[in-house]
Structure formats: structure tokens, C-alpha cells
């Protein structure tokens, strides 16, 4: 290796990838032709590079689902409605009971949850991150997660409806706390769906319906961990916990 081999790393890589203007590359080529050390190094780089081709791309594409939602159903943080003072604690007792049932079943889940007050005043919960560009809003979930989530949610809701016992609010908060300590994203999505539907079902006071549930794809919203903590705090700030 001689003084002419200065900046060898950059120069040999430039030549290996033909990156640079022709005169620059010609200059490097001329040097390599007369320098055994650089020539040997270049050959080794080329053969190692060739080996990289043995790792093909994964087959198939990621299964990402883009869910469009009506304008205003999801908003930026700054667009979110003010805290729902109109939600009296009494109104939420059955809702909380439903959520507690679901939450208890899924205590090992992890959450990145968003709660959202819809225009109809109902609380909606989703998974992931919320975003809403001007003029519209979207939610992204993977298809596999969605399918799994919907199937399991059906089971949980059936169980919830069968179980008429009123679970208390603390049970929900405990479940949420535990979920926050775990960070299993797929389970988080399941919980998000389950809670979302628990709210709806409790609010409508009717049995879960799988057909309706499938339509919840359009209700899927995405949530952050911080917002779940906000949800937890909000629930805690309601009326005193119902008696056991």
C-alpha cells in the first residue's frame, strides 16, 4: 500500500459501486491497476458483496390495512374534544362493568390505546397512534392482527354478556395497570377491540353480534400508551368506585 492509496476505503467502495463521475472512477481504476494491495482488496470486497445476494427479500408484503374514517372521528391531540363532563359516572357503571370483564380476561395484554369521545358522546377505544391529516383520517392495522382480534373479541364478548356480575372500577384500573406493564402489541390490539366493543355493547345493552363486530373495522382507532394512562386517570376521576 502506498501514499497513493489514501482514502482507500471510500475510493474502493466508489469503484465497487461505480459511484462517482467518470474521471474520478478512471483515476481510481488507474491506481488499482498498478497497486496489488488495492486490487486484492477490491477483489475481496467484490466477492464478499456477491455473497450478499444469497439473502432474498421476504416473500409477500406486510399485511397493512388502511382504514378510512369519517372526518372528525379521529383527531390530532389538539383537536380532541374537551374532557367529557357530560359523562356522569352513573351512566358509565354498566360500561365500566363490561370493560372490567374484558380487561380482566386480557390482563396480560399490552396497550397503546387511544380513547376518543365520538360525536355521539360514546367513548371509543382503539390501538396504535392517532393521526388525522387535513380533510380526513386513517387508521392502520395489520390484517392478521385484525382477524385474530375480531375472532377473540367475539369470544370475550360472549363471555362478558353471560357474566352478569357487576365488576367494579378498580378491577378495570388494575387490568389497565397490568396491561401497561406488558408490551405485547398484538394483545394490545385485541384488548383495544374488545374494550371498544364492550363500551358499545354495554351502552346499547344488547348482545354482541359478530356481524356488527366485523363492521367495527371502520371504528378502529389507534391509541398511544400515554392516552391509555389518560383514560385510566379519567376513569379514576369519575365518581367514587362502586361498591363491591
Amino acid at each position: 500500500m502506498s501514499d497513493a492509496c489514501g482514502n482507500r476505503e471510500e475510493r474502493l467502495v466508489s469503484l465497487l459501486y461505480e459511484d462517482g463521475d467518470p474521471s474520478y472512477l478512471a483515476e481510481i481504476r488507474a491506481h488499482v491497476a498498478t497497486c496489488a494491495s488495492c486490487r486484492g482488496e477490491l477483489e475481496q470486497l467484490a466477492s464478499t458483496r456477491e455473497l450478499l445476494g444469497a439473502w432474498p427479500d421476504a416473500e409477500g408484503a406486510p399485511r397493512i390495512v388502511l382504514v378510512s374514517q369519517p372526518v372528525g372521528s379521529v383527531g390530532h391531540d389538539e383537536d380532541r374534544p374537551a374532557p367529557p363532563r357530560q359523562w356522569g359516572p352513573r351512566r358509565f357503571l354498566p360500561v365500566l362493568a363490561g370493560v372490567a370483564a374484558v380487561g380482566l380476561v386480557l390482563v396480560s395484554s399490552a396497550l397503546l390505546l387511544r380513547f376518543q369521545v365520538g360525536a355521539d358522546g360514546r367513548l371509543r377505544v382503539g390501538f396504535g397512534t392517532s393521526y388525522a391529516p387535513a380533510g380526513g383520517s386513517y387508521g392502520l392495522v395489520t390484517r392478521a392482527d385484525l382477524d385474530q382480534s375480531l375472532a377473540r373479541t367475539a369470544e370475550y364478548l360472549e363471555a362478558m354478556v353471560r357474566d352478569t356480575r357487576q365488576q367494579d372500577r378498580q378491577a378495570l384500573l388494575d387490568a389497565v395497570d397490568e396491561a401497561l406493564r406488558d408490551q405485547d402489541l398484538a394483545a394490545g390490539k385485541q384488548v383495544a377491540n374488545a374494550i371498544n366493543w364492550a363500551f358499545e355493547e354495554a351502552d346499547r345493552r344488547r348482545r354482541a353480534d359478530l356481524g356488527v363486530m366485523l363492521s367495527s373495522m371502520n371504528d378502529l382507532q389507534v391509541i398511544t400508551r400515554t392516552e391509555l394512562q389518560q383514560l385510566s386517570a379519567m376513569l379514576a376521576s369519575l365518581a367514587p368506585a362502586p361498591e363491591r
Binding site: 421476504a58 406486510p62 397493512i64 392502520l140 392495522v141 392478521a144 402489541l185 398484538a186
Partner: peptide, 27 residues
Amino acid sequence: ERPLFNFVCKYVGDATVAEDLVQDTFV
């Protein structure tokens, strides 16, 4: 989504994680 997924998959070495990271990227 596909080129990004292939890149992320190779980077983190887990297709499931890669799906989530690609999704987060688009978010």
C-alpha cells in the same frame, strides 16, 4: 410498503415486528 418491509425485516430480523414498524413508519 414492500420495499420498506423488506428493509425493516432484514434490519430487525423479525417479520412480525417489521410489520408493526412499517405501520408505525406510515403513521
